[in-house]
Design a protein around this nucleic acid. Structure first.
Lengths: 205, 205
DNA sequence: GTCTATATAAAGATAGAC
DNA sequence: GTCTATCTTTATATAGAC
């Protein structure tokens, strides 16, 4: 038997449901196309409940951005933290990529966030800060792998992270548009190839 | 002295201006955020003129997608046809996709198209066909470069093109979000590095 | 072919009941 | 804290004047 919820807990549930519904509707319709009413309805409430939890539509959208990016960073960090070897880290990324491409609405939502940020000067710095954190996570992963293999860095560290990030995002998008053209774990294959190449470069030069 | 326009020509001008204005407003506000009134106004007309040229907002958007995809497929084909060397082909593609003068709004519109296509089954094949053309161009350039260097292909040819395309798109996006983090010619640097790596791999393995 | 005027609908947001 | 009722604004789309 579940214990009776306090008012705070009850509101947290409402807030969570609204966030979940918001991520769905934003993914389907985009920021402008999504209406507060549809979000509230899908969460099982009315607009009144929505406005007692969020100042407006943009605030819920921003809350989703935070949630979503924190999650990404945490995933990458966890993979790095738990991996006992470079191979294990790559394997962790491979698993992550396998589970992710199925999530079409996740991609739509992410892309929608980015467009929104590009169009809103107040929001952009927040998203950029998050993207940089993700980039740093990739940078740490790349440099750790290279040094574990005893290979020198073939480029400035931040650029290595950026390259992995860009490749990850680009492959993700093309996989959404044309699934047959993009094997789910192509990113990991490329990363493995790059690592081998870095070693070969170091030996050769 | 320009000759007097026929009614058809005059309407074609109106239509052209509406399309141009539409591409701007869609880039700025997205599909849902763009209003028919703003598009018409920016073109120098009223909503009345809009509705005598297009059935509704979606029709203008679809016309824009048709226009742009046809145009860009033709451009890519021309680059492939005219390029005197693989290097020239790659350079042509890179210039075209990465260094547009109206980089920002072109990126926004492109992304808006992609989102729209992902949400609309009828439009998607058109865009996918265009993406495949670009990919093919990258593939040809990559394989030609590698064979010119006497290096074996480190992956299936289509995957090489896809990797370049994804990297290009990913860097393009991150450059929009965080210009200072992405040197303008990073893509070329990376491709050069990859080529050297492929040679090193061939020698080493 | 384009404009002005207007009908109709939908969305954002607030106030007050419970 | 959530719902119902309501105000206000904004958008789509049409009809008729010129």
């Amino acid at each position: 038997m579940p214990q009776r919820l306090t008012r705070e807990e009850s509101q947290a549930v409402t807030r969570g449901r609204l966030l979940e519904a918001g991520s769905e509707v934003f993914a389907e319709k985009g920021f402008y196309g999504a209406s507060v009413e549809e979000i509230a309805e899908r969460a099982g409430y009315t607009r009144g409940a929505f406005y007692s939890n969020f100042a407006d539509k943009a605030e819920l959208f921003l809350a989703l951005i935070d949630q979503r990016t924190e999650q990404s960073i945490e995933e990458i960090s966890a993979i790095l933290r738990d991996a006992s070897s470079p191979e294990a880290a790559l394997e962790g990324i491979r698993r992550r990529d396998f589970s992710r491409p199925l999530d079409r609405s996740w991609f739509l939502l992410t892309t929608e966030f980015r467009l929104y940020a590009l169009r809103n000067a107040k929001v952009r710095p927040k998203l950029v800060a998050r993207e940089r954190q993700v980039r740093q996570a990739f940078t740490r992963a790349a440099t750790a792998q290279l040094s574990a293999l005893g290979a020198p860095l073939p480029a400035p560290p931040e650029q290595l992270g950026l390259i992995v990030q860009a490749l990850d995002d680009g492959l993700w998008m093309h996989r959404q548009l044309d699934p047959g053209a993009v094997p789910a774990d192509l990113l990991v294959d490329v990363l493995e190839l790059l690592l081998r190449a870095a070693v070969a470069l170091a030996d050769g030069g």
